[in-house]
Design a protein around this nucleic acid. Structure first.
Length: 727
DNA sequence: CTTGAGAGGTTTTTT
DNA sequence: ACCTCTCAAG
């Protein structure tokens, strides 16, 4: 066996071989974070300090967890199967399955994804007669999730007024509904697990004694609840090894608390933070640019990346007249690089928001460059898959109201709003599930024939599926339910049919992987083996639906948001739309510390590049169907000029010329007499400085002009009072 | 129950 | 611009 510690630098070595104590490792981008984490585990095991079953390692993505496990089994001759290495949600799910009684959950509880959750929220609100104009279901959903991620139940929340009181009430009702139906949402997995550990002393002590060592990846992304969970699990005597990078915290908007890093230092008695600052990814021009940007942030633990691999190429900056020219430039560069023999898969186009991908895709498509867009709808989130899964869920548990509502009339079988209302009424009166109500209704006196037909269908499916292997079950279900026939008659249903076939394939692969899987420890497995497998598959679909690495065979350019690029690296990186209002995003200005998060986002983007980095921006672009004029991002100004190579010199007085490509602003020439300045014209304001006229609104007597003042932001000004000077 | 017009809303989203 | 959702007419 090769020496584990070989090739580690001093800091990495120090982190890997730390004595038994809690530690915080500040691991910069490209500093070998995953390597340190896995080597630490391997070293602890190899030196006999801990057994494989005595540690718990937690990540945010399934990908990261898998990566850790595969590297681990390459380092050590151990069976990683039974090890507690996984995502927060995956581990909590495992815990709850084993201790469902203590958690007061049915053994075969099911997991709601965001879409399921939203429909559950809508259902609760309807039952409560809540006005969904005043309480938009999405907002309610966020409120519930945010509360749970703070570790708070409805009865622990304060209400300030009628509105928040109602929110709290809906939250409580929603939880009650989930409990009745035996389903849990993502946040609930964690909160429930946390509560069980907090409540059940014996259980907590058992796990505390077992997991002497807890390791956390991407610690900067943990939310309040995850932090509390870790603290509870560690207890007084165990140690936590946390690895993270405060400069790469880009999920505050979802409840991640960078502050957990400071709290951690204090709560876990960390003596010394180890900083991994040597970067093995990029040349120094790229790192210096990244460092220059991030030093503008006030709230940092402090860290400076360096490399021994030389300056490398300058950071290239391109300014387009508009987004189309920007896209065309990128196409040309990509072509040139590809012609030099570089693979497309090692090039990435990064953008701040998904809306930007359209223009880029159009240009790439026209040029015949294969590309792949990351993000968007995932396989298990597609409507046809969700429908098939809903039938599957009903076979597993017909009392699953969410699943029932999804397919009771899909394909349509004459069950309209009225029949549904009757069902819901019946369910409410008898305090039973919709399924039970449907059974009663169809057994009783004459009813619209749809419902008895549906009941018969589900019963028949249950019967036919009994004893069948999972893939065949899916075959039967998609066939008998009429799903397949429905999509066959649809004009663009071919892809959907193909997806249903793909679902069968996914089931085949799943069954193979689970062959001879370990039984859940602790308690007797509930249900039959077949039921277990079915529920495991459903859980897999909601918890591990990711894995976007399709068509690895084809060499394709990678398109994704900056968020999606975290953790990845590419030889050549293009960051597009580096403009005020886009990156940093306009919306971020309204949030506390929003700008700092945007800057971290730019830091993440820049540090993705190994060798060559392009930053591009455009003077104008189409946004929400309107031409928007923008000034270069402040982040560009934050990079020292000597690191940059400006590829094209645009005239200093921008926007003086007619807008390129005939995208004439609506109000420009024809009625220009009415408007003092042309849209796109640079103007000076005594207080806000230089800006660009974006649009006009209001009537002629009270004309309002919207000006983009770059760093100051977008401002709406009354033409009459705003003393603007042309530049 | 299906269809289409109109309204509203568009940052990012590991599970 | 474009997508999703709602509601009224067929």
């Amino acid at each position: 066996m090769t020496d584990l510690l070989e090739g580690l630098n001093d800091k990495q070595l120090e982190a890997v071989t730390l004595p038994y104590q809690s530690a915080l490792i500040l691991a910069g981008a490209g500093s070998g974070k995953t390597r340190v984490l896995t080597t630490r585990i391997a070293w602890l095991i190899q030196t006999g300090q801990i057994s494989p079953s005595g540690l718990l390692a937690v990540t945010f993505t399934n990908k990261a967890a898998k990566e850790m496990l595969s590297r681990l089994s390459a380092m050590l001759p151990i069976n990683t199967r039974g090890m507690w290495v996984g995502t927060f949600h995956g581990l909590c799910n495992r815990f709850l399955r084993a201790h469902h009684r203590e958690a007061r959950l049915p053994a075969l509880f099911q997991i709601l994804d965001i879409a399921d959750q939203l429909s559950a929220v809508k259902r609760v609100m309807k039952a409560m007669n809540v006005d969904d104009e005043k309480f938009p279901p999405k907002q309610v959903q966020n409120y519930i999730n945010n509360s749970k991620e703070e570790g708070l139940r409805a009865d622990q929340l304060d209400a300030y007024d009628k509105h928040s009181e109602k929110m709290r009430e809906i939250y409580a009702e929603y939880d009650a509904q989930c409990q009745r139906e035996g389903v849990v949402d993502f946040a609930e997995l964690l909160l429930r697990c946390y509560e069980v550990l907090a409540r059940e002393t014996a259980l907590r002590e058992h796990y505390q004694q077992r997991f002497r060592y807890v390791l956390v990846d991407e610690f900067q992304d943990t939310n309040r609840l995850q932090y509390l969970w870790l603290k509870l699990l560690a207890g007084k005597n165990n140690c936590v090894f946390a690895v993270g990078d405060d400069d790469q915290s880009i999920y505050a908007f979802r409840g991640a608390r960078v502050g957990n890093m400071l709290d951690f230092e204090h709560d876990f008695g960390v003596h010394k933070i180890i900083k991994l600052e040597q970067n093995y990814r990029s040349h120094s021009n790229i790192l210096d640019a990244a460092n220059a940007i991030i030093t503008h942030n006030k709230n940092r633990l402090g860290k400076n990346l360096w490399t021994s691999s030389g300056a490398g190429e300058p950071v290239r900056v391109f300014e387009g007249y508009n987004d189309i020219e920007e896209a065309n430039f990128i196409v040309e560069e990509v072509k040139a690089l590809h012609a030099e023999g570089q693979s497309l898969a090692d090039m990435a186009l990064l953008y701040r928001s998904n809306a930007q991908s359209r223009v880029l895709e159009h240009a790439l498509f026209s040029a015949g460059i294969p590309y792949r867009v990351y993000g968007g709808l995932r396989f298990f989130e597609r409507a046809e898959i969700k429908h098939a899964m809903a039938y599957l869920r009903l076979v597993a548990n017909p009392n699953d109201d969410t699943a029932l509502l999804r397919v009771i009339n899909f394909p349509t079988r004459g069950i309209g709003a009225r029949s549904l209302e009757q069902l819901q009424e019946g369910a409410k009166q008898n305090e039973c599930s919709l399924w039970a109500a449907a059974e009663t209704a169809s057994a009783g006196k004459a009813m619209a024939k749809g419902i008895p037909a549906f009941v018969a269908l589900i019963r028949s499916l249950q019967e036919q599926c009994h004893g069948l292997p999972l893939p065949e079950m899916i075959d039967v279900i998609t066939d008998q339910s009429g799903l397949r026939a429905h999509y066959q008659s649809e004009k663009e249903g071919e892809e959907r049919i193909a997806n249903l076939d793909e679902l069968v394939n996914a089931a085949v692969a799943f069954v193979q992987e689970h062959d001879g899987a370990e039984p859940v420890e602790g308690e007797e497995p509930a249900g039959t083996a077949a039921q277990q497998l079915l529920v495991a598959f459903l859980t897999f679909a909601s918890l591990e639906a990711g894995e976007h690495q399709a068509d690895p065979g084809r060499d394709a350019l990678q398109l994704m948001t900056v968020h999606a690029s975290k953790g990845l690296e590419f030889l050549n990186v293009f960051i597009c739309g580096v403009e005020e209002g886009l990156f940093p995003h306009e919306q971020s200005m309204y949030e506390a510390n929003g700008l700092e998060e945007e800057r971290r986002l730019m830091y993440v983007a820049v540090t993705r590049a190994r060798r060559r980095l392009y930053l591009s921006h455009a003077q104008s672009r189409m946004l929400h169907g309107q031409v928007r004029y923008g000034v270069p991002s402040r982040f560009l100004d934050e990079i020292p000029d000597e690191l940059l190579k400006r590829l094209n010199a645009r005239p200093v007085t921008k926007f003086a010329a007619e807008p390129a490509f005939g995208n004439a602003p609506r109000v420009a020439s024809s009625q220009s007499s009415q408007y003092p300045w042309r849209v796109g014209q640079a103007v000076m304001h005594s207080k806000f400085g230089q800006g660009v006229v974006v649009s006009y609104e209001g009537n002629p007597s009270e004309l309002i002009v919207q000006v983009n003042f770059g760093h100051v932001g977008l401002k709406k000004l009354l033409v009459e009072y705003a003393k603007l000077e042309p530049v």
